[in-house]
Amino acid sequence: MRAVFVLITVACSLLILPTRSSEQPVGATIDFSQSRSQWLRYGYDSENQVLDQWQSLLERIESLPTDEKLRQVNEFVHDALKYRLDSDLWNREDYWASPLETLAHGMGDCEDFVIIQYVSLLSAGITDDQLRLIYVRARIGGPASPITRPHMVLGYYPTPGAEPVLLDSLMEDILPARERTDLTPVFSFNSSELWAGGAGASAGSSTARLSPWRDVLNRMRSEGVSFNVSR
């Protein structure tokens, strides 16, 4: 996570970040036949049913209201995963895992929780003009504590410029941003663009600026995840 933080140092005090992209909204589809083939190619446990459970979840919630999609995706991810640092799981300081990698291990850190939640919600019909992966500084030890650490959450914005609700690996509750006074946003991004702090204009391509994001998107495509313009 430290390697990402040094890329952009602009911070702002609110989580009211831009939601309108210059591009058309993007959704995602998952070819689970390809995912299963890659799962076996990786040598993951063929008896593990979590991939079937993930597919069943996404099919079940596709027609549900948005708040129910958020609730069920968040619940699934928290039930399926345990929090584990990259240094313990991957023997690396910072590694952004694909949903397949995360589900196979049954654990991950904040980015891994956010990435599978993001892909799940895109697959369930929410477009990425309403979703942001938000890189923040999280205050540890209470409101007066000077101690912060890098962290990532997922923001859902019901309308452009609205206050988001946040999905977080550190808690199962989905809360509006105003209640997360422990978080200070640094930048946000989606499948194609990146925004620094609270600036309204795009700061450029997310894949060009964030090499871990570019790498995990490429891995996801090889595992059956397709990002496509929503019609």
Rank of each mutant, 00 (worst) to 15 (best):
R214C: 01
R180K: 11
M152I: 08
A144E: 13
S56R: 14
P99G: 10
L194C: 11
Y135T: 14
T127F: 06
A201D: 14
G141P: 10
L121I: 02
E47H: 15
I116R: 11
A208H: 09
F189E: 02
R214L: 05
A104D: 11
N74P: 00
W90F: 09
W90S: 08
P185Q: 02
K69H: 00
D128E: 07
T66H: 08
I116D: 04
F113L: 03
S63A: 15
V225M: 06
S192W: 00
N91P: 11
E75A: 11
R214I: 00
E193N: 14
W213D: 01
A80Y: 05
M1Q: 12
N190Q: 09
V119T: 12
L51S: 03
C12N: 04
A203W: 00
E47C: 12
Q34A: 15
I140Q: 04
V153Q: 06
L15E: 04
N48K: 13
T181H: 05
F113V: 02
R84F: 03
A97D: 01
D182K: 05
T102N: 02
S205Q: 07
D31C: 14
P160G: 02
W96G: 01
D128N: 01
S87M: 14
C12D: 07
A28N: 06
P176V: 01
L64P: 00
L210Y: 07
S123L: 00
E59I: 01
Y156W: 04
D168G: 05
P143I: 14
V6C: 13
R180T: 13
S87I: 13
S46D: 12
Q38V: 10
Y156R: 05
A104M: 08
L40A: 09
V225N: 04
Q117Y: 04
A11P: 00
D52M: 05
G141C: 03
Y83N: 10
L194A: 08
Q34H: 12
Q72F: 01
V119I: 14
R178K: 09
C12Y: 07
Q130E: 07
S13H: 09
R132K: 09
E93D: 15
Y118W: 12
